[in-house]
């Protein structure tokens, strides 16, 4: 068995950073789409939930990342303050390492998400309050920052020919759509948890908008997964050998196909379609139980975590073929 240099802290970081970045991007997009206009109420609520969710996973995930650093671990063992804070070296230089670029982007994103959440913090916050101009201006910056954090994690893993499973040009896109999907799922969970009625008020479409968006994002994610596998499996050499780990006979086949694809994507997408299609096709009222909404959200979140788990582990238990 090969050694896993990057373990659970990194897996959790990739998941949490994706969730936070996704929530920030979705919040900004929804706010700009209609948070101050005709759909102000429901769009604003989605944007608010997204903005309030975003900072926490970003901060916790980054904290976990520091726990994985060799110098931090040595610093804890030796009670050495200098080693505990050695990670500051990341910000003493700017270079083209994906991790360096990512650290700067992540640092900016955390600070920005906190400021953005602050604009929504007041209980009386609404679409036309005195912070609305700042909020909208910040949404324009939050969207690219969120996308950058989500994409860079894929580029970080994908930049190494020595790790053929990760060395795919499409990994960044897979992480982006997974981040957006988990971001929507996080907002959906919070929305369902906070709503008082069994169903939304008449005319309220927040749950519907979230469910439709999530189903679409999952569909795109599945398409990218198919491309990710095809690019590797339909070739020869290192990528084909590496991708075998998630194909029949591979060590992670069940985790990937049952955990990530079936329960993390297909089942929640089908449930979402079951509830949204009547409204989409026949304009019937959108009705869904709060428990179903929460279950969908949790399944998508679990799928997003398992996707990171499978990819991080698969990349480390496979390598180039031949010497």
């Amino acid at each position: 068995m090969l050694e896993l240099h990057w373990g659970m802290p990194v897996i959790l970081y990739l998941f949490l950073a994706g969730l936070g970045a996704g929530a920030l991007t979705v919040s900004g997009s929804v706010l700009l789409r209609g948070g101050g206009g005709w759909f102000a109420g429901q769009h604003f609520r989605i944007a608010r939930h997204g903005a309030l969710i975003a900072p926490l996973p970003l901060i916790v995930g980054t904290g976990l990342l520091i726990l994985e650093l060799g110098t931090f671990q040595a610093g804890v063992e030796q009670v050495d303050i200098a080693k505990l804070f050695r990670w500051i070296n990341l910000f003493k230089i700017v270079n083209l390492s994906p991790m360096n670029i990512g650290s700067w982007v992540l640092g900016l994103c955390i600070l920005f998400s906190l400021a953005y959440a602050w604009t929504f913090l007041a209980p009386t916050a609404c679409a036309q309050d005195d912070r609305c101009r700042v909020r909208r201006a910040m949404a324009w910056i939050g969207i690219p920052l969120g996308v950058a954090v989500a994409v860079y994690t894929g580029i970080l893993l994908g930049a190494m020919p020595a790790r053929p499973f990760w060395n795919s040009q499409i990994l960044g896109m897979l992480f982006l759509f997974s981040a957006l999907s988990t971001g929507v799922a996080g907002i959906l969970c919070l929305h369902a948890f906070l709503r008082h009625e069994e169903n939304d008020r008449p005319g309220e479409q927040a749950g519907y908008i979230l469910a439709v968006s999530d189903a679409l994002l999952i569909a795109l994610e599945l398409l990218i997964i198919i491309l990710f596998i095809m690019f590797a499996h339909l070739t020869i050499g290192d990528p084909a050998h590496a991708i075998a780990v998630i194909l029949p006979g591979g060590e992670l086949v069940w985790w990937f196909w049952i955990g990530v694809v079936l329960f993390g994507m297909v089942v929640p997408a089908l449930v979402e379609l079951r509830h949204t299609l009547p409204k989409l096709l026949h304009h019937r009222p959108y009705r869904v139980l709060r428990s179903v909404e929460i279950a969908i959200g949790l399944l998508v979140l679990a799928g997003g975590f398992l996707l990171r788990y499978v990819i991080v582990v698969a990349g480390q238990i496979t390598g180039p073929v031949g010497m």
Binding site: H5, W6, E68, L69, G70, T71, F72, Q73, A74, R86, W87, N89, L90, S97, M99, L156, A159, M160, P161, A162, R163, G315, Q316, G319, P320
Partner: peptide, 21 residues
């Protein structure tokens, strides 16, 4: 200067690196 992020360990095709305890 090294922070022990292990990125180089992942990237080395020759598995030549390790974290010094």
């Amino acid at each position: 200067v090294c922070i022990g992020c292990k990125y180089c360990i992942q990237a080395c095709p020759y598995d030549a690196r390790f974290i010094h305890p």
